[in-house]
């Protein structure tokens, strides 16, 4: 009872904090809380939200994917060059190609973790460098500029629909699809089970390694999608785009209450965690706070969120012991579990 209440409470709390921040900022900067500006912030945070959801799938299985930003940079470069070289390729095909390339890069991570057994943090730290290196090899270090890319490629995500650009709608669509996958499919259930208790999952017939592999594939696919969105948004592709952005995705998950120990977390939490970072990033310059303070504030929030998570997990442990010690009746039933 307590844990679910904390989880629900936690997401409500995070939502409330975001609203309070928006209210506070709008006092200092009138116009901050207009629907137009808020839609802008959401649109601006879309890529982080999508990446954070991929990262969440990986973190749920007790892993981490540090290569998402490098994956994004490589796929972004690849589709930008494709577009520049063959302007005739229709956009849906390019987006499909971005996701497919991202999926392959994600599968490489998954393969190393599943089949070779390399710890996820090491495997993806390696591919982080490799994928950026490949982006350099692919482009020869050259940039793909706005003038080389087609207008369909660059402008489609900016087309507004009901006040929100397609870029933002893409994030909403991804949130919906991911929510269904996580809550309503066997794969989603396997993600939670294999992180929550790998041994129990194994004995229940869930292939923990394969689940983890597909979590990396999912994370890679979303990173590929974001590769296109990023290049279109900033109208330029070069080797160093989104450098360090993988840490923002992890931060969004941690702030959103995705346990780094695996098995705990909700889609709403990850989305709110990303939005929180998005609001801070967009609001602080508006009220004239230096970017260095932004970083410090983000860091502080991450630490507070981790403390919150740690407390939550400790409470979980205590609860079991106390109950087991308190009543002899459960002990009898404990035996019956055999």
């Amino acid at each position: 009872m307590m844990m679910s209440r904390i989880l629900k409470y936690r997401e409500l709390l995070l939502g409330a904090i975001i609203l309070a921040l928006i209210a506070a900022f709008s006092l200092r900067a009138p116009g901050f809380a207009t629907p137009r500006n808020l839609a802008g912030i959401f649109n601006d945070t879309s890529i982080l939200i999508i990446l954070a959801l991929g990262q969440m799938a990986v973190i749920l299985t007790k892993s981490i994917d540090l290569s998402v930003a490098a994956n994004l940079a490589f796929t972004g470069m690849a589709v930008a060059m494709l577009n520049a070289a063959y302007p005739g390729i229709p956009l849906p095909l390019l987006i499909g190609a971005a996701m497919a390339i991202g999926a392959v890069l994600g599968a490489v991570n998954g393969f190393m973790v599943w089949i070779i057994g390399i710890p996820p943090i090491v495997a993806t730290l390696g591919t982080l460098t490799i994928y950026r290196g490949l982006a350099f090899v692919l482009s020869g270090g050259a940039w793909v500029n706005q003038t080389q890319m087609t207008s369909a490629f660059l402008d489609t995500p900016r087309i507004p629909l009901l006040g929100l650009p397609l870029n933002g709608w893409t994030a909403l669509l991804v949130i919906a699809v991911i929510a269904v996958i996580f809550m309503r499919t066997g794969f989603g259930r396997a993600l939670y089970a294999s992180g929550g208790n790998p041994t129990a999952a194994l004995y229940a017939g869930i292939d923990v390694g394969r689940t983890r592999f597909f979590a990396f594939v999912l994370s890679g696919t979303l990173a590929g999608l974001c590769g296109y969105l990023w290049v279109a948004r900033y109208a330029v592709a070069y080797v160093d785009i989104a450098a360090g952005f993988e840490l923002d995705t992890v931060a969004a998950c941690v702030i959103g209450g995705i346990s780094t120990l695996g098995g705990i977390g909700s889609v709403a939490g990850a989305v709110l965690g990303a939005l929180f970072l998005g609001v801070i990033k967009n609001a602080l310059p508006v009220i004239d706070i230096s970017p260095f303070w932004q970083m410090a504030i983000s860091g502080l929030v991450i630490i507070i969120a981790v403390l919150f998570n740690a407390r939550q997990e400790r409470r979980k442990g205590r609860l079991i012991l106390r109950d087991a010690a308190r009543s002899p009746a459960p002990a009898a039933a404990e035996g019956a579990a055999a």
Partner: peptide
Amino acid sequence: GTLSGGNQQ
């Protein structure tokens, strides 16, 4: 995790 040991079993 919120259940007693016996009910967990």
